[in-house]
């Protein structure tokens, strides 16, 4: 296993052979301080530097409260960092934009819109004509396996179906980067596995850059080219691990693969270390 420090300049190109890697996201010495009522200043992220190449699938792993969501929100442009900067395609991020599409654990679907209405929202905002936006959206809904549910409201869907709609809604405006914050965290194990497979299939097809936050070591290793391990209080990058496993990946094959098993065990050990360190920092 190749373990690399978090310095962006030293991070190697991960995964299978691809065109010369260009940086899609550059996080440069980002720190985030929150004012809280209990503790006056809380350092949620401390000096984070990370470069994510175009088309890479990168997971962020770390204990609860280590700042994973905060880091994702900074890249999304929803939160601006206290210091340092984040760039997408070389441009400093100052606001949300359709080049970066979020998918949240809570789905955040518009309850007043149907499945079709939710998916069409992005293309319509981008100025796509209604008929065209509808055709595209119907195709996307079919792709995420929800054909026939176009006129359902989110409340009439199961959690897994809602998350498929949320993914379709984000894919509909063609973001170059997907920002996924524990998207499958609220789902049962079976649904989670199916959605992981579907996400990988979609990713294999158009190779978007994905920044994926998760609690699950398993999920991170299965999906990613690179796993970023964070530690808590303050949130720091502990290690960046390249996951050198062949693609396309099949879950059933991987589970038997000793390399996969070793990644999972090694990262879980690292997790334990971080947890112990977290108790007595």
């Amino acid at each position: 296993m190749k373990v690399l420090p978090s310095r962006s300049s030293e991070v190697a190109t991960p995964g299978p052979a691809r065109q010369p890697a260009t940086a899609m996201i550059e996080i440069d010495h980002v720190s985030q301080v929150f004012q809280t009522s209990a503790r006056k200043d809380h350092l949620a992220l401390s000096d984070i530097s990370l470069t994510i190449e175009d088309g890479a699938f990168v997971s962020i792993l770390g204990p609860s409260g280590c700042g994973k969501s905060t880091l994702l929100y900074i890249v999304g442009g929803f939160v601006s960092p206290t210091s340092g900067s984040a760039k997408v395609k070389g441009k400093t991020i100052t606001a949300p934009g359709p080049d970066r599409g979020p998918v949240f654990q809570e789905f955040a679907l518009f309850p007043w819109k149907t499945v079709l209405g939710n998916v069409m929202y992005g293309p319509r905002q981008q100025g796509v004509r209604a008929t065209e936006a509808e055709a595209q959206s119907r195709a996307l809904i079919e792709m995420v396996g929800l054909k026939g549910y176009e006129n359902f409201f989110p409340k009439e869907l199961s959690g897994g179906m809602k998350q498929r709609v949320a993914l379709a809604r984000t894919l509909a405006y063609h973001p170059e980067v997907l920002l996924m914050d524990e998207p499958f965290g609220a789902l049962d194990a079976h649904t989670r596995t199916r959605l992981q497979n579907d996400l990988l299939n979609i990713w294999e097809r158009d190779r978007k850059t994905v920044l994926f936050v998760t609690h699950s070591v398993d999920e991170a290793v299965f999906l990613s080219d690179k796993v970023v391990m964070m530690s808590r209080s303050p949130g720091r990058i502990r290690q960046v691990i390249d996951i050198d496993l062949p693609r396309p990946r099949r879950r059933t094959e991987l589970l038997l693969d000793p390399r996969y098993q070793k990644y999972v065990v090694d990262i879980e050990r690292m997790f334990d270390d971080i947890d112990e360190a977290g108790v007595n920092p």
Partner: peptide, 14 residues
């Protein structure tokens, strides 16, 4: 209003 609804719309280009 749930913050993430607003974020989702802003990311979509609103």
């Amino acid at each position: 209003v749930e913050q993430k609804l607003i974020w989702s719309a802003m990311a979509a280009g609103t």
